[in-house]
Design a protein around this nucleic acid. Structure first.
Lengths: 212, 212
DNA sequence: CGTGCGATGTATCGGTCCGATACATCGCAG
DNA sequence: CTGCGATGTATCGGACCGATACATCGCACG
């Protein structure tokens, strides 16, 4: 999962570890705490060994700022390679069971802007199925085994059940939006930030009609 | 965390690994998938080595059913020891930072029936604080960094933010209930199952007034 | 009658990720 | 000028997972 996230982020810009962690935290803040350096650095090493990423030179082109500053060592900037981009595409497309657990789904979702619509739909539906199963399990426990459990445990299940129902509803909306070929709800928001070059499928815009 | 959960469950009845896993799944189904045997068995071994649990004899007293069945080996039944109960009480009372993350909180909450009220309150408030922090982080991202993120990532944050707000509200209710000295919401439900002997603090009953 | 399949049951191995810890540099506020 | 908080890289032990292996039991289906 970390591998996918790192590859995805480095596709937007080269970065060093610390920066990567901050971006990761911003992007995935909704689904997981903060990535640990104890995972990050070993993973970076692994990715580099595999050839998916390489170390890039500091101050890439126009060194306008921070000009003197003699040494400046430390600070290892990583950059994704062509093989890395292929790897990313492969990881995004192939959905294993871990794609649908809380973390896995979150990471995949966070990179939906770089995912083709068919895959998005497949992942959303897989996630919905999984949550529905969890929901049924909770209903069973609340129905059949309720008298075996104390009030607190019951309350926990009830709360979990509600969360499941809400997530299913959320997923339904997203799936409907996806089928209609439009971006997620996104009430009004002007959006349209400085999208970079690169060949990724542009995120669904403000629903410009393609049909004449 | 697993340690706490196992000790807590074995306090209700002796069990073998497979059974333990099922009970764990039923009790914690709302917060985590299912415990893996790859964690369970090594942990059982660790707890046994520490003296918190021991192997108990199969067919404890009245062997009414399954009488013949010669061998019946395999099936290792574990039983909590006096030291184990102390350990459990200690783990329940002392709250580290991990007590407030998703899994840790869930496990603690699941054993609230065996937790004194002051500790319950402390844990609920700690959890609320933590979720409020996460909520603020998400608000920041949605406010300040919104234009840097694509529509999907934004939607993920929005959904996460909603979940935070809902959980805070839930916690507020629980805290209020707790302060008023009553069990969690539990709308009506007759409850009152066959509670076992043992000296644990009885779960808050149907609010019988103690004051004359 | 058998046979094979799903539930029960115990166990290990490699791998991912976390939390604690260490250490070094930089900018700046006191 | 001194110390402190942000920046920055790195390792180590431990918790937990997923895959896998293997053995027994009951029973449904041919």
């Amino acid at each position: 999962m970390l591998e996918l996230a790192i590859l995805g982020l480095l596709q937007e810009a080269p970065m060093h570890g610390y920066e990567l962690r901050k971006e990761l935290t911003a992007k995935l803040g909704a689904i997981r705490a903060a990535i640990s350096y104890g995972s990050l650095y070993p993973t970076l090493r692994r990715l580099q060994a595999a050839g998916w990423i390489t170390e890039a030179a500091e101050t890439p082109a126009t060194a306008e700022e921070v000009p003197a500053l003699t040494s400046r060592r430390g600070r290892v900037v990583y950059k994704i390679t062509a093989e890395g981009k292929e790897r990313f595409a492969q990881l995004i497309a192939q959905a294993g069971p871990e794609t649908y657990d809380d973390t896995g789904f979150g990471v995949h979702f966070a990179f939906f802007a770089r995912t083709d619509q068919a895959t998005r739909l497949r992942i959303l539906e897989g996630r919905r199925r999984k949550i529905e199963e969890r929901r049924e399990g909770l209903r069973d426990v609340l129905g059949r085994a309720a008298e075996r459990l104390d009030a607190y445990t019951l309350e926990l299940q009830r709360h979990g059940l509600e969360a499941c129902e809400r997530e299913v509803r959320w997923l339904e909306e997203l799936i409907a939006n996806e089928r209609s070929g439009r971006a997620p709800t996104v009430p009004d928001t002007g959006t349209a930030g400085g999208r970079r070059e690169d060949t990724s499928p542009p995120p669904p815009g403000e629903s410009r009609k393609e049909r004449p």
